[in-house]
């Protein structure tokens, strides 16, 4: 539980451009990425962002295409906020917060068009590959959005298609590489006491008025956004965050490429 005194000292710090963990308001925590942690997945990565720790894993499955897109496969993203990650997380069906994380992360990757879904087609109109992007949060200290995108973009590099013969997947044999045309990244900001901090911790997320996640493509075009929290942003604040997001997504992209 956060006491009124601690809340006040966080707010006081932020207004002088400082944060409880010693960072400045525009400092992103340096992530640590470990790839290939799950050999049973087609691709995987563990991301440690400060005390936040997630494992992103990719499994392929065979499905049927949507009638309006007969020669395209797809992705399905899920975020599991394990009760081991935080005392307030509960076991059970996905919470609204978990659903939001998975949908925002999904949109950043999908809308960036880094994945040409046509390469996921097996037999037009009949069989396609579905990429299941599952992220498990083991330790929660804020900013699951950026950690999730970073985890999946790391895990997607080097994914190979398994063989598909006679209506059966042969997992032991792999064929072509999955092709990625770009590396979208997300940067998340939280507004506290009228200051905007990047890469919020859990405590900052608890105390924030509003949050904004910005997904940027390699050319800095925006591919997804999500505002959260009960507060608001002014037009000038959007300008500020968009400008700052370029720097942060570039930094994150550099860690993956």
């Amino acid at each position: 539980m956060i006491s009124g005194i601690t809340k006040k000292s966080i707010m006081d710090l932020v207004s002088s451009g400082q944060r409880l963990d010693g960072r400045g308001i525009d400092d992103f925590r340096k992530p640590k990425i470990t790839r290939g942690v799950v050999k049973n997945a087609s691709g995987s990565a563990m991301v440690e962002l400060g005390k936040t720790r997630i494992i992103a894993g990719i499994k392929m499955s065979v499905g049927t295409p949507y009638p309006d897109k007969p020669n395209e496969g797809s992705i399905a993203t899920m975020a599991e906020l394990s009760p081991m990650a935080h005392p307030e997380f509960e076991a059970g069906p996905p919470s609204p917060a978990a659903i939001e994380v998975s949908r925002v992360v999904d949109r950043v990757i999908r809308e960036s068009e880094t994945l040409d879904f046509k390469q996921l087609c097996i037999t037009p109109g009949e069989k396609i590959w579905l990429l299941n992007l599952d992220m498990y949060v083991l330790d929660m200290d804020g900013n699951l959005f950026d950690a999730g995108v970073l985890g999946f973009m790391s895990a997607l590099q080097g994914v190979k298609f398994p063989k598909y013969e006679d209506e059966k997947v042969i997992w032991d044999e792999t064929g072509d590489d999955l092709t990625l045309s770009g590396t979208p990244m997300a940067a998340t900001f939280a507004k506290l006491n009228n200051k905007i901090v990047v890469d919020p911790t859990r405590t900052e997320e608890d105390l924030m008025d509003a949050r904004l996640t910005i997904g940027l493509k390699d050319n800095d075009d925006i591919c997804a956004m999500q505002k959260g929290g009960e507060g608001f942003f002014k037009p000038s604040e959007f300008d500020d965050m968009l400008e700052r997001a370029k720097k942060h997504t570039n930094f994150l992209r550099g860690l993956v490429k």
Partner: peptide
């Protein structure tokens, strides 16, 4: 005690979470 297998933990097909 809650025992859970991650969706990507098994060989072959993805395990349905939960």
């Amino acid at each position: 005690c809650k025992y859970d297998m991650a969706a990507f933990s098994t060989d072959g097909n993805r395990k349905r979470p939960g």
